Computed example of a mutant assay.
Amino acid sequence: MSTETANAITEFRNEWAFLSNFHKAPLTWEGLHYPTSEHAFNAGKTTEADLRRWIAAANTPREAKRRGHQVRLRDHWDDEIRYQVMRAVLRAKFAPVPGRVQALLSTGSVDLVEGNTWHDMHWGKCTCSRHGGMGDNYLGRFLMDLRAELGGV
């Protein structure tokens, strides 16, 4: 599958890997340092400082995600908080780093689609044969919103 079409970036891989939450892009969010936005997002599932530090210390984004599945979710996480956290984490990842802002702006006006084959139809669009590109693509949508906020199209 190609990662780019005339109107969309359809996977956050190769030259577009920086769009992925698994991409190594250190950031500081709510006073803690995280190696990736995946770490920060999963830490945002709890308000307990010790648990946030435990998630931040995970060796890989995959491990941070696993640890995030082990914490008691904040009240209203699924309804609204997860969206607020994702937007704040993306802002912390991109906004303070000029090179990252320029990279995000370099995507122009194309749609950003977190295409995947692991059945994530909430944050992305699953391209497996069963789902055929279905999904809400919240990560892509939030990145496009941030791109516009930072001066993009």
Rank of each mutant, 00 (worst) to 15 (best):
E48Y: 04
L27T: 05
Q102P: 10
T28L: 04
P96T: 08
A49D: 15
Q102E: 15
P26M: 00
G152S: 03
H33A: 14
D79G: 03
A6H: 09
D79A: 12
K125M: 14
T28N: 02
E30F: 09
R87Y: 10
R52T: 09
L90P: 06
N21S: 11
R87N: 01
C126A: 11
F22L: 12
T3R: 11
R91D: 03
L104G: 02
L32Y: 09
G132E: 15
W123F: 11
T107Q: 04
T107S: 08
E149Q: 13
P98I: 09
E38N: 05
T47N: 12
I81L: 14
T46A: 08
D145K: 03
T127Y: 13
E4I: 13
E63D: 13
F18S: 01
L146P: 00
S106E: 10
K125F: 00
D145V: 08
S20N: 11
S109V: 03
D75R: 14
D79T: 02
S37L: 06
N42G: 04
E149T: 09
Q70D: 13
R62L: 12
E48W: 10
A56K: 00
N116E: 11
T60L: 02
H39V: 00
R141L: 14
Y83S: 05
R130A: 15
W54Q: 04
S129T: 15
R87P: 02
R62N: 12
H76I: 03
A103M: 09
V85A: 06
V85I: 15
R53H: 09
M1F: 12
T3Q: 12
P98G: 04
L19F: 01
S2W: 01
